[in-house]
Simulated scan of single mutants.
Amino acid sequence: MDKNLQGIEYLQQGKVEEALKLFTERIEEAPEDPTAYINFGHVLSAVGELQRAEAFYRKAIEVDPDAGAAYYAFGTFLYEQNHLEEACKQFEQAVQKGLQESDAFFMLGLTFMQLDQATFALPYLQRAVELNEEDVEARFQFGLALAKAKVYDEAIKQLEQVVKAEPEHADAYYNLGVAYAGHVNDAKKAIEMFNRALDVQPDHALAGYGKKMIEKATEES
């Protein structure tokens, strides 16, 4: 078996030292291959050696500046450390270098969402959904981005697909409630969505608050 693949198996089994040994051997055999540096970085990140992990991700990019996977791996690492602006740059590089996978577009879009830049997130989240229509979280984030961009009808359509695929998605029900209340002005439908969110997650504070506000407005009118 390929040493990178075997090393990943060891890592998944919690055999950190064995994984590092194989990745080290692979680096010695093919120092121009970025994959082993990426995997070494994953191991170091998993055990909390963040500075060393970052060095290996940077080394992967250094040995092959055209390896989209290296930028993606480094971007994911930075995202996990909440260095969002730098993560965004790495994900953009990953896509520009030819990494045309759903996860790359999703992470780029998600990072823009975390940076409160929904308009920039939209095309990447849309592409993530196009590439993997079964990715419920990508579709949910796409729906949120549409709502923030005030494209409400399409946002509702996407969020309805989310709850159809994942009936226990409380946040999708909540956001549908917001859309029905604020855009469609359908209080009955909004309360229904808030109730569904609360059925799934009884302590969903936002859904509870939204329901109370609509009920209060209805009583006053």
Rank of each mutant, 00 (worst) to 15 (best):
R58T: 01
R127C: 01
L110N: 14
A94D: 03
E18F: 08
N175R: 00
F106S: 00
Y180W: 13
C88G: 05
D186T: 09
E18D: 14
V136N: 07
R52G: 03
I8W: 09
Y152F: 14
A205R: 09
Y180N: 04
D103F: 11
D171N: 06
K89G: 11
H42Q: 11
L22C: 00
Q141D: 04
E29K: 15
L99M: 13
A155K: 06
V163D: 04
V136T: 08
A70Y: 05
A205P: 01
F106H: 01
D103W: 05
A197E: 02
L50R: 08
A187F: 11
L110E: 06
R26E: 15
A179C: 15
N195T: 07
V47K: 06
A36T: 10
E192Y: 12
Y79L: 07
V178E: 08
K150L: 10
A165Y: 07
L108R: 04
Y79W: 11
K150P: 03
E54N: 09
G48L: 10
E32D: 13
A69H: 09
K15T: 03
F40Q: 14
I191D: 04
A69V: 14
A53F: 03
G143W: 01
T76A: 13
V47T: 06
F74T: 03
G48H: 07
F194S: 04
E137A: 02
Q51F: 09
L159K: 02
E25K: 12
L50M: 14
Y124H: 15
K211F: 05
K211Y: 07
Q81M: 14
F140M: 10
K89Y: 07
M107Y: 13
R58S: 05
E49K: 12
G75M: 02
V47R: 03
